[in-house]
Each structure stands twice: as structure tokens, then as C-alpha cells.
Design a protein around this nucleic acid. Structure first.
Lengths: 111, 111
DNA sequence: GCAATACTTTGACATCCATCGAACCTATCC
DNA sequence: GGATAGGTTCGATGGATGTCAAAGTATTGC
């Protein structure tokens, strides 16, 4: 049975917390990867290109989830993560697209 | 003569830095106030409703400026601040509106 | 049951960050 | 020049944050 990890309700998503969650290169990379995949994705696959240790990856997924950005479900010994498109669009229309759509070359100057 | 305080060029505005600058209640309040006024505004007036000491306000204005969000000019013994609408729209279309448009009641749950 | 897999939690550590008081700087005005 | 006003910088401080190694928790498979 897939269990769902605790997450804030739509109405309790805080903008400052949300921005703080996105204001980190690792988490922004994770979000971009999820966004590009467009649907439920394997946590390990999404984090494939990220160069931090498993505990740190776990920490970042937790921050994203607790900020209301993602939903994580446990399926066996893997985790599946999804961006909360509907909730985020309802609360902050256009925000996600504005942050995640720009090309990589644009959010990292000289990158 | 109005002097302009140093700020990053349009192309060197970093998304992570920008989000970090906005991920603070005081700075978000300042940005909202400026956004609502729609043009150049007196720093002291904008910060009128904020309940922190002058050194802290000064610190926050600096963070906003160095993140590329605002332009500050010195006119006599007051400062005038402006949101860099054009540069921000060019780099991250729709971002500013998505973050600053929501009503107050929405970015602070139960507020 | 046992071993291996996948991820999390705990604890520690270094760094960053918001905040303030005190001192400083630069205009304005008498 | 002296006094005042508006802001900034400096130094200190308490708290948050990113990171990792080690230990813990589930789940799969033999």
C-alpha cells in the first residue's frame, strides 16, 4: 500500500517558506528535474545528477515537502515524488512556471 | 546630483540569490509596498510599517539591491528605491507578478 | 530468518543570517 | 561652525541551515 508522507494543506502553504525552500541550488535542481518530467517520478532518479550524500538528499526532499511544493508517497522501498501543481497554481498562479521554466543557462549566470 | 548605489547587471542576476532575497518576511513586505506604489519611492516611507530598527532596514535594502531586485539612488539625505521591473521581466518573465500580486491574506496563512 | 537494499533519523559541525546597539558619515539648516 | 536628521557600517549574538558519518527503520528476496 502506498503511504503518503505528511504535508501541509493547500491553505496553509506559506509564501515565505515556499520561497525559502526554492532558494537553494540543490532543491531548485530537484524541482527543475521533477518539473521537466511532468508527473510522478522516482526520487532516486530525480536526484541522480545531484552531488550530495543520501542523507542530504533526504533532507532536501523533506524541506520541499514540508513547504508544500511536493507530495511524496512511499511505495515499497522507493519513494515517488510529485509536484503539487494544482495546489500551487491555486495559491500562487504562475509562480511555479515563472521559477522553473527559465533555461538552465539563465538561472546560473555564466553557467 | 543623485548617485546610484552599486547593483548587479541584468545578466548576472542569480535566481537562487533572488529567491533567497525574497524569502524573508521583512523584505517581502518592502517589495510588496514598492510594487503597490508602482514607481520610485522614498525608502523611509516604504519601510514605514516595518517593525525593525534602522540598521536592519538598511541591511534588507542592501540585500534586495545586491540580489538585483531594486535600484537605489541617493538624493540628498534620503534614498529612493525602485523595483527593476524591466530587468526582472527580461530575465524571469512573470516572476515578480506571481510573487507580489497575491493578497496579503494569502501569503501569510491565517493572517 | 537472514542478508541486502533504499531511505531516514540522529548528532555534530561549520557556516550563514537576521537583529540590535553604538559609532560613523553626509546633507541640510540655523 | 554647530546641531540635527537620515542612513550606513561595525561588532556581537542567537538562531537557522546545509552537510556528512553513523546508526536506525522498512521492504524485498533468498
Amino acid at each position: 500500500m502506498p503511504r503518503q508522507l505528511p504535508q501541509p494543506s493547500r491553505d496553509s502553504i506559506n509564501l515565505v517558506t515556499l520561497l525559502g525552500a526554492l532558494a537553494d541550488p540543490v532543491r531548485l535542481t530537484l524541482m527543475r528535474e521533477m518539473y521537466a518530467r511532468g508527473g510522478p517520478a522516482d526520487c532516486a532518479e530525480v536526484a541522480g545528477g545531484v552531488e550530495v550524500t543520501p542523507p542530504t538528499v533526504s533532507h532536501h526532499y523533506r524541506v520541499l515537502r514540508e513547504a508544500g511544493l511536493t507530495t511524496t508517497t512511499v511505495e515499497g522501498r522507493r519513494r515517488v515524488v510529485t509536484i503539487r501543481h494544482d495546489d500551487l497554481e491555486a495559491r500562487f498562479p504562475g509562480l511555479l512556471a515563472a521559477i522553473l521554466t527559465p533555461k538552465l543557462a539563465e538561472w546560473v549566470p555564466s553557467g
